[in-house]
């Protein structure tokens, strides 16, 4: 009994909080816009199930694939997410490496420091970046006082600011899995590599990095997936030309009040992300097997 319960709980969770909502969204994506409550038609009715299903169609999907706007937004979102992920990885790796190498007794404190920003609202932290990056912001003041630049740099409201914002916000999600995988590496492995004639930098590429790949993958997925749908950071830090799918979704839902089309956009976004999610899942499984 108890075993069944343990198995059932996660599936029940997925069913209630993922699968059912997804099917509701999917159903709406097959509907038509209407001036009513709710603003689409048909609505589900138990008395006329046949009539309900006969009114559903894939019109909204054909629509979003006909307008280059949506495909462009998907690609631009994927591009920004991809490069932010790479950047985050490049910055997070040395930090995680340093943490894993730090004396044991410091490590809990270092992990705390990485998590610490979460104590402050995400929005406030993104706003703080406005204060840093804007024309008369801290960064420009600092660089000008140092005499490194004579004219303030325009970073705010550009894609550069979006990258900074995403990298900053998602850094902990990259550092923590990296740290977890680096910290697990038996230090004796590096001694063994050195003992067999490998200098430290070669040992890094031959031993440390390959063994941290599960962490690299986990971190990359944890950054890439939410960054693709990111809305707040490009809105606050980006320029108007930063078109991401999150913004397009927002426009569809709030400006056009077109719940069916915005649902279709969301469903397609999910499908776009399902590929990396499945890859991630398979990687996790392989890990679990290898760990046995």
């Amino acid at each position: 009994m108890r075993r069944w319960f343990v198995i059932l709980v996660p599936y029940l969770w997925l069913l209630v909080f993922f699968l059912i909502p997804f099917f509701i969204v999917f159903k709406i994506s097959l509907s038509d816009i209407a001036t009513a409550i709710p603003p689409y038609t048909p609505t589900f009715s138990i008395t006329d199930i046949g009539g309900f299903f006969s009114q559903l169609d894939f019109e909204n999907y054909t629509f979003i694939f006909q307008d280059s706007l949506y495909i462009g937004a998907y690609f631009s979102a994927l591009k920004i997410a991809f490069f932010s992920t790479i950047l985050t990885l490049l910055i997070a790796y040395p930090i995680a490496y340093g943490m894993a190498r730090a004396p044991r007794e410091w490590q809990p404190t270092l992990v705390m420091l990485v998590i610490l920003p979460f104590w402050t609202s995400f929005l406030i932290r993104v706003y703080a970046w406005i204060g840093i990056l804007k024309k008369e912001g801290l960064l420009n003041l600092f660089l000008m006082n140092l005499g490194l630049i004579s004219e303030p740099l325009t970073i705010m409201n550009t894609n550069t600011a979006v990258y900074i914002g995403i990298v900053y916000s998602y850094l902990p999600f990259m550092i923590l899995p990296l740290y977890a995988s680096l910290e697990k590496i038996n230090p004796a492995l590096l001694e063994a590599a050195a003992d067999l004639g490998s200098p430290p930098w070669k040992s890094f590429w031959q031993v440390t990095f390959p063994l941290s790949i599960p962490g690299v993958l986990a971190g990359c997925f944890l950054v890439f997936i939410p960054a693709t749908g990111e809305f707040v950071i490009p809105d606050l830090l980006g320029g108007s030309e930063t078109l991401m799918i999150g913004k397009t979704l927002w426009n569809e839902f709030f400006n056009n009040r077109d719940w069916p089309v915005s649902s279709a956009v969301a469903v397609v976004l999910l499908l776009v992300l399902v590929v990396p999610i499945v890859l991630f899942q398979r990687n996790q499984e392989k890990q679990r097997e290898a760990g046995r």
Binding site: D67, S240, E241, L243, T248, N255, N256, R257
Partner: peptide, 19 residues
């Protein structure tokens, strides 16, 4: 109306993003 709203939003997106 919904149709005009959509085309206005699309036009606006084009202006704003240059797409």
């Amino acid at each position: 109306d919904a149709k005009t709203q959509r085309s206005v939003t699309r036009l606006w997106t084009k202006i704003v993003t240059g797409q």
